[in-house]
Nucleic acid binder design. Structure first.
Lengths: 203, 203
DNA sequence: GTCTATACAGGGATAGAC
DNA sequence: GTCTATCCCTGTATAGAC
């Protein structure tokens, strides 16, 4: 097994374990077992546990970037792109109910640990925020775009946290439905019919 | 110093540290330093770290129960009681920006640890959920009361998570304002004017 | 590149003196 | 009730053989 693939396997296994068990709670022994290598061999590929975390965060960032690029290619209407984002909690409902949101839970944990990689992990939130902001701007709401982006992010975090706590799948579907209705007020069709920009669409 | 007060001091310090640093990350040494007792002396008051956690959860439950009872006494209108709940994220904005929501972050951590006290911690969510459900029922929405309660909980979790991640106070105020506007559709005044029950109030 | 053996630190828990 | 001393386990990290 080459070094490159072993390294990739470690990152992959660590990613999954950090998500499911948390970063601090995941030991080298657990990762080693998953990858089928010895503990000592880690240090040929990474110099520390923090180093693995950095690689995991970088991998997640890259993965999410590719996902957003795919959405942009597949959906031409910014409103449809935002709907895609909202649907994440449905698409990933099984994992979310079991482990919560990979972005939110990691950020929260690193913040409590006072871990230096917190800012890097926060980049995941920033990535989604900027992307959503861009979509709302294209929809014709440049002045409120960032606030709207944050609102959609808050939706996803709120749904993920409670779906995780209560293991409630119906709740996810209800909140997504509600979000889609809220979004329809900001889509192109409703916009042309509305006299104002957003204050009214919100009420 | 009597046993009762020492025990209370331990619970108090552990509560604060579990909130700020997380449960697993908080060592006996850290609690001992905060309470100014020796490590060994813990085991006169508690038989294990899990035992301290149980006491902390029980204390939080009792604290929140008293808070809700106070709100019920101070506000006669159920709509005002719900508004009180929504305002939590403003009232506690400093701590929330630094440490997140005490209920959500603890529940998420215990879930990742596979900790047996997870269900007890979930009782905090259940407490708020049942209380909010009761207020919405009194407002005249018995059929949707639970879904509305969950929606308000999701709001608070979403806001807390993002306010924590971005340390953004303006965001908190915007989302609270948005929530108050949404709630106004469910208050007694708007209800009598609306033909339907809730589908419309959401749009 | 991968292994075994091991050093070293930290954390939970116990024993027993005072 | 509180202390000190200590045990034991787990976890990260290193050394060095293969």
């Amino acid at each position: 097994m080459g070094a490159a693939t072993t390294r990739a396997h470690i990152v992959e296994a660590a990613d999954r374990l950090f998500y499911r068990q948390g970063y601090e709670h995941t030991s080298f022994a657990a990762i080693a077992e998953a990858v089928h290598i010895s503990r000592g061999n880690f240090y040929y590929h990474f110099k520390s546990k923090d180093d693995i975390l950095s690689a995991v965060i970088a991998a997640r960032l890259e993965s999410r970037r590719r996902m957003l690029e795919r959405w942009e290619a597949e959906e031409t209407d910014p409103a449809d792109r935002i709907r895609r984002f909202v649907e994440i909690v449905v698409t990933n409902r099984a994992d979310i109910q079991r482990y919560g949101c990979p972005v939110g839970t990691l950020t929260t944990e690193l913040a409590k640990l006072g871990h230096p990689a917190l800012d890097d992990a926060g980049g995941l939130f920033t990535l989604f925020r900027a992307w959503l902001r861009e979509q709302f701007t294209q929809l014709g709401h440049p002045a409120q775009a960032d606030a709207l982006a944050m609102h959609v992010l808050a939706f996803s975090q709120g749904v993920a946290t409670l779906a995780h706590a209560f293991r409630d799948e119906d709740f996810i579907h209800r909140e997504v439905q509600r979000m889609h209705e809220w979004l329809s007020a900001y889509s192109a069709g409703a916009l042309s019919a509305a006299p104002g920009d957003g204050a009214q669409a919100d009420a």
